[in-house]
Design a protein around this nucleic acid. Sequence first.
DNA 1: GATGAATGAGGGTTCATTCAT
DNA 2: AATGAATGAACCCTCATTCAT
Lengths: 214, 214, 214, 214
Amino acid sequence: MQSKKISSGKSNVERTFVDVARRAQLVDCAIDAIAELGLPKASLAEVARRAGVTKTTIFYHFANREELIQEVFASTLRQGGEFLSARTGRAASPAAELRAYIEANVEYIGAYRKQVKVLTAIAMNFTDEDGRTRLTHNASVYGVSLAPLQDLLERGQRAGEFRDFTTRTMAMTIRATIDAIGPQLSVIPDLDLDAYAKDLVDLFRHATEKERPS
Amino acid sequence: MQSKKISSGKSNVERTFVDVARRAQLVDCAIDAIAELGLPKASLAEVARRAGVTKTTIFYHFANREELIQEVFASTLRQGGEFLSARTGRAASPAAELRAYIEANVEYIGAYRKQVKVLTAIAMNFTDEDGRTRLTHNASVYGVSLAPLQDLLERGQRAGEFRDFTTRTMAMTIRATIDAIGPQLSVIPDLDLDAYAKDLVDLFRHATEKERPS
Amino acid sequence: MQSKKISSGKSNVERTFVDVARRAQLVDCAIDAIAELGLPKASLAEVARRAGVTKTTIFYHFANREELIQEVFASTLRQGGEFLSARTGRAASPAAELRAYIEANVEYIGAYRKQVKVLTAIAMNFTDEDGRTRLTHNASVYGVSLAPLQDLLERGQRAGEFRDFTTRTMAMTIRATIDAIGPQLSVIPDLDLDAYAKDLVDLFRHATEKERPS
Amino acid sequence: MQSKKISSGKSNVERTFVDVARRAQLVDCAIDAIAELGLPKASLAEVARRAGVTKTTIFYHFANREELIQEVFASTLRQGGEFLSARTGRAASPAAELRAYIEANVEYIGAYRKQVKVLTAIAMNFTDEDGRTRLTHNASVYGVSLAPLQDLLERGQRAGEFRDFTTRTMAMTIRATIDAIGPQLSVIPDLDLDAYAKDLVDLFRHATEKERPS
DNA sequence: GATGAATGAGGGTTCATTCAT
DNA sequence: AATGAATGAACCCTCATTCAT
């Protein structure tokens, strides 16, 4: 455990059960703290308090605050990715795929509000002195890569399902729309996400589909 | 001047010229600091340094850090509102109005990146211990109210220009899309905003317009 | 006072009376703390306690611990230099000069034991991670340059007063001998320094003087 | 093994082979750490890292940090004593003995720089809160007793080889000169120790020898 | 109208040490 | 014989804020 502090890149295999559990617990408490207080106010003291341990215990399991935050981000992102890929795998056509993509994303945002908050909070505040992100993961906005979405749109165009548009900007628009739901939820907690999802599906269907010949 | 510290709601009339000027200068420096460093790292020491005054001077002009930030937010929002209303006033139809709305917003975001950054930074970090915003202005996402936009959409529907959709969610979608441009600009500074605007106009035209009879 | 923290190289003129006094007081307390506890245990808390102020007060007057220590070292060295140059200026010959040098040094060590301890403590412990000194002053052993001494010896040789020897190593030997007195004093506080000085003068006279022709 | 923690005075006989070996290894690693980083930065974590064991292992073999340091000091001193006594035993006369003493010491310093560094580091930093040494060994400067040297000088005087001088201060001068070589070596690593030794021998021959009758 | 001086609360981090296993 | 896990005390340092001038 001691040598781990030098590099955090150790495989999980070398970790003890207790250690894995504690790390997970600390990550969980950090997620709660960040979601409730925001990244800057989620101090190690606060995380430790929630975990019922001392500040120093955190340093036993993580090299420093940064490593903890990175782990929070990475694990949350991983969890989100699993959620989404479980819901978007097998679609009949690009159009159906896009629909599934939007619906799955909105569903995720509704079901994992805390996690979405955390991703946003970290993505927006975890920067070094020059303002550049300190995130080690390649991520757009708060972590979800644009590439797969853009790829989906291109396939739709090649298949003749979608009309001609710049896939990059369309992808960005879709992601932007989705990513903005999180913050909105903070302000309007009783937002009807199903309706919202339907509207988005509808909206982007109109925006992408080939115009029907009159 | 003394009583100001009790309430910040003094009208400008009661302030001397120097006072007004200093306040403006301090707000400006705070804007720069926040845009460059983010809200949490924009300490009063940093603002004072940029203004060439002492930290204590800030406390002479503002009751505390919070009041300064509120002023930064309010004045930036006011400035943005003026910019937008100057560009969206007189449109021939709701559809044209929507187009002007989108274009003006994107133009604003491109022209006032610093201000947009500041609005985002404050909106995302200026929260209570319970996570609720401490902003005194009624604001969606980073400050622009949804009401006028929703109103515009309703007028369009009543005029028969727009098809039938939930105006509230459509308004939120439009704002969300627009609001997300700022953060994207930080990551992709050379983003072509004109194309982006065109795409959005196109996108929301498809999304709102009445389907043509076949 | 606030901007001073950026660079400590400000001329004294720009400092207030109070500030100068506080700095001096803090330096004094730091000297006491270092002399009594050694550099590593002379924490800022300890210095603050002795000065009757808060830790933060130290940061108001010095950028960080390093700057305080540097100031302690520099001012102590300055003071020592003044003491010595006041006693070694006008000697009739190199031999007399050497005698005065040794006597003045031993006298200084006896009179300023605390300062000598501090110089030693800083010189030996103020290193960065590679073990190299962090001292900004060019200094041998704990701060006194060898150059003047070596120069004195060379002049003595050219004048025919001293015999032929490597001036560099002789200078180092003399300094080494002198510098070692401090630590010895810690162990043997009642050491008779006058006798010690006489012995050293005698010793180095024998070591340097031209052998008398038989 | 358990009782060891109460008293560190266990004789080697009571220790198992593994125990002895580990202790020796830990002492070695501590020596390396202290020589490279200085006493204050030679943390137990650092020592453990170099030994490839856990911090707690150190506490199994030593009651606390202090005992480890004491052992480092004692064993290094013991080793040095053996080196020196092997080279100074059988000299023809006190004068030759003094010469051998100086040469052997300088040779030791050159050959065991690491150990010399360690002795110095410990001697200078291992102090009480009152500034007094915590070393359990009777030691001058960094550990070498003055008594044998002073005895040698007295024998030389009684034998009529040395002139009349205070043996105590002369002994201290010699030791001081020798002890100062270590720190100098850190600053000037390529110092020619042979020349230095010759100079010292020469120097102290001049300083001690009976003046030749003219 | 502005400043100099000081402060208390809290930040992340390192350390030697302990205790159960 | 050794370790994993945890801790309390202390470290240097930054922050917003105050008070007298």
